[in-house]
């Protein structure tokens, strides 16, 4: 409860500062607690050029939507974002090149598209801390307020679950694909932001 209360206070604080009408509206929505099936989820994954929001940029963003406990791929989206700086080291991780990203959209286009789909939804990430850091930074720089939305983090949930089972947690145990294996989900090849968003969404279904 305390975190919901905290979130509400923060939302009140920021809703007047936000300069984008949709972001303002999002921060004004009442927060419902609903069961899994009736909740709309937007499962998001980012690719970034560094692990620290102050040093890197969002290179791509993708999401899939869960409605009525069903992943609806016809609502999926995937944006490559035009970078301000060069790709640098993260090209190694994501196999992105500068020229790939020259064809991307401006960050504001991707972020606005995101604002358009998250109304009355809960955001889902695998490792929310990292991706929310980037999203909040982007939102604040564009529209002066962070994206203060209810968030589910499959990594944290799994971490808690493993701790409860008092198993020693090994390095890598909480990686998305290791988590999926524990739920009997199929191995998938490493893809892109959209593939990882989908993989996270399937994990979230299996967790419920």
């Amino acid at each position: 409860m305390s975190s919901a209360l905290g979130l509400n206070l923060q939302r009140m604080w920021w809703r007047h500062k936000a300069t984008h009408p949709i972001l303002q509206a999002l921060l004004s929505e009442p927060l419902h607690t609903q069961n899994f099936k009736d909740t709309r989820y937007v499962v998001i994954d980012l690719e970034t050029t560094a692990l620290d929001p102050n040093q890197g940029e969002i290179a791509s963003v993708a999401w899939v939507v869960i409605e009525q406990a069903t992943i609806c791929l016809n609502q999926a989206a995937h944006f490559h974002v035009k970078l301000q700086r060069e790709v640098g080291q993260s090209a190694v991780f994501h196999q992105l090149t500068d020229s790939d990203l020259e064809q991307g959209v401006n960050l504001s286009v991707a972020m606005e598209a995101l604002l358009n789909v998250v109304s009355n939804s809960v955001l889902v990430f695998h490792n929310a801390h990292l991706d929310m850091g980037f999203l909040n930074k982007a939102m604040r720089s564009l529209w002066n307020a962070p994206l203060l939305m209810p968030v589910v983090d499959t990594l944290q949930i799994e971490h808690k679950r493993l701790l409860q089972r008092t198993e020693a947690i090994q390095v890598g145990d909480l990686r998305l694909f290791q988590c999926r294996q524990r739920y009997g989900l199929p191995d998938v090849a490493l893809h892109d932001a959209l593939g990882d968003a989908l993989a996270t969404a399937e994990l979230w279904l299996a967790m419920n």
């Binding site: 791929l73 995937h78 991307g104 893809h191």
Partner: peptide
């Protein structure tokens, strides 16, 4: 580059 709202969902297509 494909249309961002009509993305290629490689993981599903591969399957």
């Amino acid at each position: 580059m494909t249309d961002s709202n009509q993305p290629e969902i490689q993981a599903v297509a591969d399957f």
